[in-house]
Design a protein around this nucleic acid. Sequence first.
DNA 1: TGCACGATTCGATTAGCATCAAAGTATGGC
DNA 2: GCCATACTTTGATGCTAATCGAATCGTGCA
Lengths: 224, 224
Amino acid sequence: MLYCLLDGHARTSTELAIVGGVSASTASVHLARLKRERLVASMTQGKHRYWRLEGPRVAAALEALMVVAGESRPRFVPHTPSRLRFARTCYDHLAGEIAVLLHDRLRAIGWISVRPPGAEYEVTPEGEKALASLGVDVAAARALRRRFAYACVDWSERRPHIAGALGAALLQVALKRRWVVQDLDSRALRVTRVGSGELLIRFGLRMPDTPANTARPRSRETRI
Amino acid sequence: MLYCLLDGHARTSTELAIVGGVSASTASVHLARLKRERLVASMTQGKHRYWRLEGPRVAAALEALMVVAGESRPRFVPHTPSRLRFARTCYDHLAGEIAVLLHDRLRAIGWISVRPPGAEYEVTPEGEKALASLGVDVAAARALRRRFAYACVDWSERRPHIAGALGAALLQVALKRRWVVQDLDSRALRVTRVGSGELLIRFGLRMPDTPANTARPRSRETRI
DNA sequence: TGCACGATTCGATTAGCATCAAAGTATGGC
DNA sequence: GCCATACTTTGATGCTAATCGAATCGTGCA
């Protein structure tokens, strides 16, 4: 359950019960204890209760344990394709290096701000105007029956990027404007020449070696 | 038991049994399993068997867990005096930042080499000559009925320095030549003006703010 | 060669823990 | 206001795994 949460997504106890292969009551007991010991935190939203790791320290401990555990026995190394590290979808939003860069940039230029409890993002008035000019309807995203914007910790970068309704809307715009195009049978995304230029002009993000970034071998492959 | 080993000292199963508050047989079972899972490694010397952590990855995992565990409950923070971080004795050898710097330097200039299995050090022929000119009798240290030279991981620096007969001999020479002087009632050492100069000339080690390093406040205090 | 000491193995005992079903609580939708 | 859904609490149960003493093994010392 904890390793499942390592990707930064908050999950319900039911989901975690399935992941852990135990009954809902068992999962509930575990989560209650994990909360008592400050390993996870929960946020109640209606009749759902979302669980996430309590903080980066817990994630660090889990990763350290993963390293140790990984050594003890000959292990399956799935050889993650490097292009997945650069740009991919995570459910319905952008993930990978590009998403992390964009996230950092949006915070730096003040389009989004982060609110202390948990990692809920808010779009600033300036951000809302600017996003509107790109074709992102922030108000509509806000009205959706789902979490608006929260930090999703990237499994390759281990740094937050934007998930939720806002993240989904951003991906939709990027796809619509053909800044990125989707691989047919994978979650990988390719940044187009147009996208590369736009990202540079609008956000100062220089893409490495576009549009050939899907072909270029990268230095280090990630585990899992 | 694992946390006890985190200081880098190899210990016997009897010692670890006492530390863990369990019987010798229980400790033995645990250690056997920890070895099977590659968390610890053992080295047999005569009728003693010395146990140590298997590697830096295990230490990293333990430290990460310590951080998490330390948060969960109000914890005693003993406020380690900063001068202990810089130079101190560890049983009978030098420890602290100065010992780590010296260790790195001795390896860099090829006076000592490390042999793969475990962390046993060997003194090179050149090293033996050079050390002799300083007054360190390597042959005598080697003849002693104890481990000659091994890596002791510093609790403040978390990096190896030289322990064993060689480490003890080095400290004795440093004390004899008054490169360092001992605090009366603590393990702290003070680097003298003479020592500061010698370390700079002979090893290129620049001491921070000597001889006032005992008084200077340092930026961060360590845990434990 | 025999004794002392350190360490491990084995077998039996037991505590404690994970687990689940059923009952209880809370929320949202109709 | 009622039911469906999501989740938690409680209590009983089964089983794992930690523990220890006794016996055994191996090394060093006299």
